[in-house]
Amino acid sequence: MELREIEIFLTLAEELHFGRTAERLHVTPARVSQAIKKQERAIGAELFKRTSRTVQLTPIGAELRDGLARGHRQIKEALAAAAAAGQGITGELSVAYSAPWCGSLVMAAADVFRERHPHCVIHLHDSQLNDFLGPLRESRDLQMSELPIDEPDIVSGPVLFTEPRALVVPAGHALAGRDTVSLEDLATVPLVTIDGQPRYFLDLHYPHRTPRGRLVPRGPTASSWQEVLALVGAGKGASPTCARAARYYSRPDIAFVPFSDAPPVEYGLLWSATRNTPRLRAFVGTVLETAAAGSAA
């Protein structure tokens, strides 16, 4: 669920009226209805009970409202902090991103931030997959990466955007000719994994069993994304990724096949809990604004 959809859901949960919600958010009632239907399809349950006269939250909808409201307050507080910091933000910020599509959003936000705070210098970096938390703990200010990250010393911001998941396989593999693959297909090919990532992160992105309980075999490990692609191209296994990777990493020896049933990959900002400076908060606010405006394409 992306930021605009969260805003639509929370506003409708408060107004309980599609027309007033649309008016508050300066969109059409049809846009509100489409967003809610999309959320309900993704969750697999009704969030609102609608009649010709009333709109009411379902128990699941009320639970979702309570959970999302906390994160939404954090977003608003970050934006307020950025606005309060205003002029006078100086110094340097070191910002990393784990993938080109994350870099697009970070760079768009950096352009806006430089216009607002011309005396603050932003350094952009490509993060290393096998140690993407190390620099964050040592010296880096911010990072946009795949989620989830659950570390006591790392702050994990809200989900900024999501991407459909795909499986990258050797070009000659039987799965390469398919229109889609399923999570059950993971039992038929070894997974190439990344060294140095938290166990819970690996377990989510590289599952050990399929939904039906079949064992997912393990292939070799890699220390970088380019090494993953080289191993896959050499026929050593396959690797889950996001579908957009096909646009950036096309090679003749690999194929990207979309999943038909896998959850999307979520992306968000990470920063050290000990490095909560005004310029960091201002940049976080700018990234949130940029993502909400749809500049993550």
Score class of each variant (00 low, 15 high):
243 A>L: 13
32 V>F: 01
55 V>N: 10
265 V>F: 04
39 Q>H: 06
260 S>H: 14
46 E>F: 11
63 E>W: 03
186 L>W: 05
122 I>E: 06
232 V>W: 02
163 E>S: 14
78 A>N: 08
117 H>L: 10
104 S>D: 04
23 E>S: 11
172 G>I: 03
111 D>R: 15
217 P>R: 08
48 F>Y: 02
288 L>T: 04
105 L>P: 10
95 V>Q: 02
177 G>H: 04
155 V>H: 10
122 I>Y: 14
69 A>G: 12
71 G>V: 11
212 R>Q: 15
211 P>W: 06
287 V>I: 09
161 F>V: 04
93 L>K: 03
276 N>P: 04
214 R>D: 15
116 R>L: 12
15 E>I: 01
245 A>P: 06
272 S>R: 15
32 V>P: 07
297 A>D: 13
241 T>Q: 03
22 A>V: 13
123 H>F: 09
163 E>I: 01
45 A>D: 14
33 S>Q: 13
195 D>R: 15
7 E>L: 03
266 E>W: 08
39 Q>M: 15
237 G>M: 01
151 E>K: 08
184 E>L: 00
125 H>D: 10
220 P>C: 08
219 G>M: 09
110 A>V: 13
207 P>H: 13
276 N>S: 13
220 P>Q: 14
246 A>P: 14
238 A>R: 11
17 H>L: 09
187 A>I: 05
39 Q>G: 12
162 T>V: 13
296 A>G: 07
1 M>E: 02
277 T>Y: 05
55 V>G: 12
197 Q>E: 05
140 R>I: 06
128 Q>F: 04
50 R>K: 15
70 R>L: 13
198 P>L: 01
244 R>C: 01
138 E>K: 13
52 S>C: 08
86 G>I: 06
227 E>V: 05
3 L>Q: 01
175 L>C: 05
262 A>V: 02
126 D>R: 07
288 L>S: 03
24 R>W: 02
278 P>K: 12
18 F>D: 10
269 L>R: 08
258 P>L: 09
170 P>L: 10
115 E>N: 05
21 T>F: 02
15 E>C: 12
35 A>P: 00
33 S>G: 09
95 V>E: 00
252 P>I: 07
67 G>D: 14
241 T>P: 08
229 L>E: 09
183 L>R: 14
65 R>A: 12
143 Q>M: 14
259 F>K: 05
114 R>P: 00
84 A>N: 08
76 K>G: 05
219 G>Q: 08
191 L>E: 03
95 V>H: 01
79 L>H: 09
76 K>N: 10
180 T>S: 13
26 H>N: 13
78 A>C: 05
278 P>E: 06
176 A>M: 06
23 E>D: 10
191 L>T: 02
172 G>Y: 07
238 A>I: 11
275 R>D: 03
152 P>V: 07
173 H>I: 07
42 A>G: 04
176 A>H: 07
75 I>D: 01
176 A>L: 05
